[in-house]
Design a protein around this nucleic acid. Structure first.
Ligand SMILES: [Mn+2]
Ligand SMILES: [Mn+2]
Ligand SMILES: [Zn+2]
Ligand SMILES: [Zn+2]
Lengths: 140, 140
DNA sequence: GATATATTTGCAAATTTGTCGCAATTATAT
DNA sequence: ATATAATTGCGACAAATTTGCAAATATATC
């Protein structure tokens, strides 16, 4: 159960799995990356705005979520700990965001490139922009 | 001259290279990624806040700049059209941002991965997080 | 270079987004 | 069940971003 891992991560820091934290986590589970505004409106009457900001900040610090550069404002999604590692493809035409499964060869190369410069990589984010299959077919 | 390419990109869209646009472009040239706030304060008394937002939005639409996820807030930098294509490494410890020269092998693989899923990649962004050489040496 | 036309800017106000203090509530430990 | 520490909701704030519109500036034409 995902809630168990979440609970474990929190307990390790002497923090507790509260109702608001569970609600926010559930909003993120199995969903595409969401903007703060969407999260806030989806949690309306359940969790306060301030708590959502505080929780996302906490979750990010613990590596439970991370934020993405899609469009003008950022979006939040669960980290690799909860959904398999993946990258994103964003269509410039229709605005759709697709998931790209992680490719072992590519992952290795990314770490290698960083190591070559004497860095110790811990995580990374790759966003590809262009045209999706649909949009590439039709004229603009 | 970089201003010529900038001018060409604007003219193609029936837009003009105005004083504020040139000033903002120059602020970005040869500089590390900058936050909106820094851009606003650096352009103080020269370009209005609203104009900076409008210009960055325009530049982004035309592919002249793109935004980066570095830490909590995003930053703006010139796109590959004006500075060589590169990636970023961000140190979780000291907060420094380093440039990673583009690696031909890696670049090819990124495009291949996207193409395999029937996407037509036009650009991409890779951000690596971890510890820099300095910080990896010393204990936390 | 002067004039006409369309675009762009600055300004100030409005809206949206993100933060903070603190009393009341909720979670863990005993 | 009680004690203790962590967490939340609720304003009130503060910061960031957007907008309408009259004035200023750029391009096209004469
Ligand atoms: Mn990866
Ligand atoms: Mn690249
Ligand atoms: Zn598309
Ligand atoms: Zn460092």
């Amino acid at each position: 159960m995902h809630h168990d891992s979440l609970h474990a991560l929190l307990v390790k820091e002497k923090l507790s799995l509260t109702r608001p934290r569970r609600i926010i986590f559930d909003l993120l589970l199995h969903k595409d990356p969401q903007s703060m505004q969407v999260l806030i409106s989806r949690a309306a009457n359940k969790v306060d705005r301030a708590t959502i900001y505080r929780t996302i900040e906490l979750f990010e610090r613990l590596g439970i979520v991370h934020r993405l550069n899609i469009g003008w404002k950022y979006k939040i999604e669960l980290s690799d700990l909860f959904v398999g590692h993946h990258h994103h493809f964003h269509c410039n035409q229709c605005g759709a965001t697709h998931t790209l499964q992680a490719n072992p060869m590519l992952e290795t190369m990314i770490d290698t490139v960083a190591a070559k410069e004497n860095f110790s990589p811990r995580s990374h984010q790759l966003e590809i922009h262009g045209l999706c299959g649909q949009c590439a077919g039709q004229p603009a």
